[in-house]
Nucleic acid binder design. Structure first.
Length: 139
RNA sequence: CAAGUAGAUCGCCUUAUCGCUUUUGUGCUGAACUUGUUUCAGUAACGUAUUAAUUUUGAACUUUAAGUACCAUUAAAAUGUACUGAAACAAGUUCAGCACUCAAGAGGAAAGUCCGAACACCAUAGUGCAGUCAUAGUGGUUAACAGCCACCCAUCGUAAGGUGAGGAAAAGUGCAACAGAAAGUAUGUACAGAUAAUGCUGUAGUGAAACCAGGUAAACUCUAUGAGGUGCAAUGCCAUGUAUACCAAUAUUAUAGAGUAGCACGCUCUUUGUUGGAGGGUAGGCAGCUAAAGUUUACUGGUAACAGUAAACAUAGAUAAAUGAUAAGGAUAUUGACUAGAUUUUUUGAGGUCAGUAGACAGAAUUCGGCUUAUAGAUCUGCUUUACAA
């Protein structure tokens, strides 16, 4: 029942506001951002401020070189988004520091939801370990 | 029944939980605007009732005694009127956020970007010559096409059908395996004939073809017809801001250079600094943006492509790019095992149960009509050949 009550409080949303859309910011992210890797995932992050007041803005990317067809790319991106959506409240629920994220998929092979989910958790744990203590306000 | 051939259709389904994009409506919160009411303050060369004073006459009525009602000037002037500002309240509109809610949400090829259009913007000063690209039987169809349909011809196939790179070889240039002396600025060998003589004439042999010949145009070429360019990242608007293309003034430099798709002629333009004016592009937002040569059905005309008429239907609009994830179940195909042993007949093995496996190619991006390519599997129809039966 405790497990259930957690779910009542948390909001597993990933709407337009939380997506990384600005071309400028993405460019800045790739040039100035730092990276954390949990193969086949890589998180590029940048401490920044968002105009609309949201805390996290996240994008997802798969290289066209590694996955040629649009269907394969879409499939992986959807899985990444889904994994991000479900894991975000577990790690960043109380965070107040604003970040821009970009999650890359590095492998040439396909994947499943289960594997992606597991890797996403590793990735976030790594990220939380890495960032300085004073910035960390989440539990 | 088997093999084949042509065409058409479909290309997983259901439920639950958590989400995404766009919409419908409701509620709440916030902001802006409009209207009304109330209160307060201010302004006014607005000014009423009323009060006080002055003038007591100009004008009107009844009457000739006066009266009635009004008016003039000055001062005060509550309330009021108009405008302005502020606050509160109410209503409405718009926008934003949040919550709930209604509805919808990838394809037959959405793909390749290969043709043809719609739509948008740019260019429009040419003429001659040369050149580039596309198309190519005949007729029809269409908004248009290199598409489609019909027919003719050629060719492949036993056939149903398939394919066509189907204009011109008497304008010119080139090319040609094998065989052959030789495939063209050639004339060998043998025999016969003619002649002053010969490389003259005929026959034989090779080959598809042996001389004023023929093949080849998926060789150049010629003929006929057509072709301005760039694509929704077009284009328009919004807010912000300034490089410098632009304009004006002023000082200064050159007759050469640049553009006009290749050349010639022709045409157009002109360097740098300062001051002033005006004002891009990118990124962001909004529009363009989905009702269109629409889809389905029926009938009519036409061999057909297609056209016409009538009825019904409302059907994605994202932008680092929504249409998903997870779980359970079902259907389908297939493999194995077990079962069943069905039937006019088959080298017999329909059907049932359990377990495993499989589901392809592929993701809208301004919109249509085509073509091309990829595609597991399923269904239906026409026809051909062979065999069997009647």
């Amino acid at each position: 029942m405790a497990w259930f009550s957690i779910f009542v409080i948390m909001r597993f949303k990933y709407s337009k506001k939380d997506k990384l859309k600005s071309k400028k910011l993405i460019e800045q992210l790739f040039t100035e951002g730092k990276a954390v890797t949990a193969y086949p995932l890589r998180l590029i992050y940048l401490n920044t401020e968002h105009e609309d007041g949201s805390v996290l803005k996240t994008g997802v990317s798969v290289s066209k070189r590694l996955h040629k067809t649009a269907v394969a790319r879409n499939r992986i991106k959807r899985l990444l988004r889904e994994a991000y959506r479900l894991n975000k409240p577990l790690y960043f629920n109380n965070s107040s520091t604003a970040y821009a994220f970009m999650i890359l998929y590095l492998s040439k092979d396909g994947t499943t939801f289960e594997a992606t989910d597991r890797k996403m958790k590793q990735l976030f744990q790594k990220f939380l370990d890495k960032i300085p203590e004073h910035e960390k306000t989440s539990t």
